[in-house]
Design a protein around this nucleic acid. Sequence first.
DNA 1: ATGGTTGAGCGTCAA
Length: 273
Amino acid sequence: MQRRMSQRLRIATWNINSLRLRLPLLSRLVAALDPEVICLQETKVPDELFPAEGPPALGYPHVVRRGMKGYNGVAILSRVPLVPIDTAPDWCARGDCRHVAALLDLPSGPVEMHDFYVPAGGDVADRAANPKYAHKLDFVAEASAWFAARPPLTRTVLVGDLNIAPLENDVWSHRQLLDVVSHTPAETQGLLAWQRAQFVDALRHFVPEDQKLYTWWSYRNRDWRASDRGRRLDHVWVSPDLRGALRSHTILKDARDWPQGSDHVPVCVELAL
DNA sequence: ATGGTTGAGCGTCAA
């Protein structure tokens, strides 16, 4: 029986909440996770101010990024060569920098990599009263329809800060958060429809749905660990053909205590490809 | 119903 050698592929995703401020923390991420690919959100840096020397110095010479002034911004840092993908639309026609995609050029063949930063959606869970909430729902619906219209995906990974905690145990209190933006039925149904059309939830592949799982803890808590009012806002999805390639996952909870840390912690999934 | 904290960039806005 012939058996092709498979390669380890670790993909990390992190809402870094300012790349320039937290560039030094990336070396901690690399030390802890040793990923081949790092997907970042909320880089908050225009492309012309992107710290070009930073990622290569950390061992990630291949970079695709899309940034703007002040807000949003996404980037993929890689040890593996990248080929940018530019076929996705400008979501909601806003010119926002909320999505970047690339092919990972692996010896076993290309892997399609998507990095998303879904709108947070503001405070009021009412489409009519809150344009940010309407934008969030529209963004999810548009992305969902775009992926659903494609032929069945293969060797595809989608990660990012999707700003929605879809399952009951993705939040500290399902009942208390049903009206809180990030866990309303309109959001969770929209996100699950997007996911289930083409993807497998890689983190829930490893952690059963009856167990609490969080990736974000608000800054607005005196003791985030003691109160533990977390939400699972950061996600890793893989196309169904990669289910058997899933090896392990890490939620780097310790990163929430890094000096001047982000309110999101890095999430990592290892595949054998 | 409100507050609590952080980042960008210099007003507040976004989260």
